[in-house]
Design a protein around this nucleic acid. Structure first.
Length: 366
DNA sequence: GAGTCGTGGGG
DNA sequence: TCCCCAAGACT
């Protein structure tokens, strides 16, 4: 550990810091649906959902998900199609495929009981260093650190740490510190308090230091550099991709949809047939028709461009031109699935393709 | 270690 | 408008 960090850590009154932090948390903590009890399964679900996702976004998904799959066994026995549907729109879909797989593993290897040791729980798919600490501390009161973005931001300010928190290696610095600082009596409250403080008071751009219960312990506050911390290098711009999608219907009103590959981007989700095209708008429709013929052996008549939708991912941007179209009578449709409008509601689509569907409906009305 | 993997909200 | 973010994990 760096000397300056070590120096500031040992100047911290750890007992008072814990007490001030936890006292504040017990008074000010938000009422969140995963704080009703300590059911390890529901804590687990909430922690997976909260990865890189805001609390306000997660709440309705958590309520619906735990109503549909109330127990670990219920989730383990569910069809993946239904599990993905419950995650539709939440993003990072590998999270729920890993959760589903891990829950089955808990049933087969641990008798349906979520393991309570760092070694065992870390073997489960989708449970990394943060989630391990979060579940163990919150559900089982085990004094393991749970270092997320909040914790790195708060502790970088408290101890004036100038390491780049975007680098994976930096997380271990905070873990080592927190093994010392975490409350051994109240690890659950301590970990949640640190995250709650980061979410409510010690926010990224304009921290509310005057309302902070631990500002007297904070090196950054005393030095007036709380706005300069944490140090976080920025990532590069996402790559632009030009695409075209076809909402194909037949004379009976069926839709023709495609299930995506089982790995990679938006794995196992459903979509309207689409392909990457050149940026040449004049020939784009012909490129799409050729793709539909080559890939799916369809004969289709596409209408003029309906419109475009944009979808921004973390690392790329889809610019999608939408074409409504008719599948010709008797046409084949290899690797596509023919569904009614009602049946289609049972499948999970990425948000971009929900937008594509809505756009196609607007044209039908005209 | 850097890239992959979603989405919607806020400054 | 644009950029960054939000309770990360996996390859």
């Amino acid at each position: 550990m760096l000397d300056s960090i070590d120096k500031n850590l040992h100047s911290l009154n750890i007992e008072d810091f814990r007490k001030d932090l936890i006292s504040w948390y017990l008074l000010e903590k938000r009422d969140l649906p995963w704080r009703i009890n300590q059911d390890p399964y529901k804590i687990w679900v909430s922690e997976i959902m909260l990865q890189q996702t805001r609390v306000d976004t997660v709440i309705p998904y958590f309520l619906a998900f735990t109503e549909k799959f109330p127990t670990l066994e219920a989730l383990a026995e569910a069809d993946e199609e239904d599990v993905l549907k419950a995650w539709e729109g939440l993003g990072y879909y590998s999270r729920v495929r890993n959760l589903h797989s891990a829950v089955k593993e808990v049933v087969s290897s641990y008798g349906g009981i979520v393991p309570d040791t760092p070694e065992e729980i870390s073997k489960l798919k989708g449970v990394g260093p943060y989630t391990k600490g979060a579940i163990l501390s919150i559900a089982y009161n085990v004094p393991e650190p749970a270092v997320d973005g909040n914790v790195m931001r708060v502790m970088s300010r408290i101890l004036s740490i100038w390491e780049d928190i975007a680098k994976p290696k930096t997380r271990t610095i905070f873990e080592n510190i927190l093994y010392e600082v975490i409350s051994k009596e109240q690890p659950s409250e301590f970990n949640q308090a640190l995250m709650e403080l980061g979410a409510i008071i010690c926010t990224p751009t304009s921290p509310s230091c005057l309302m902070c219960p631990v500002r007297e312990h904070c090196h950054a506050f005393h030095e007036g550099v709380q706005r300069e911390l944490p140090v976080k290098s920025k990532k590069k711009k996402p790559k632009q991709v030009t695409m075209a999608a076809a909402v194909l219907k037949d004379a009976e009103g069926h839709y023709y949809i495609h299930k995506r590959n089982s790995s990679g981007l938006l794995a196992n989700l459903w979509e309207f047939p689409n392909c990457e095209t050149t940026i040449d708008i004049v020939s784009q429709k012909e490129q799409l028709v050729k793709f539909l013929s080559d890939e799916y052996e369809t004969e289709a008549e596409l209408e003029p461009l309906t419109g475009t939708i944009q979808h921004v991912f973390s690392h790329l941007v889809w610019n999608i031109s939408v074409y409504a179209g008719q599948l010709k009578p008797g046409s084949s449709y290899k690797n596509l699935v023919k569904v009614t409008e009602t049946e289609m509601q049972r499948y999970a689509f990425p948000v971009s393709h929900q937008k594509i569907y809505k756009m196609s409906l607007q044209t039908n009305e005209q």
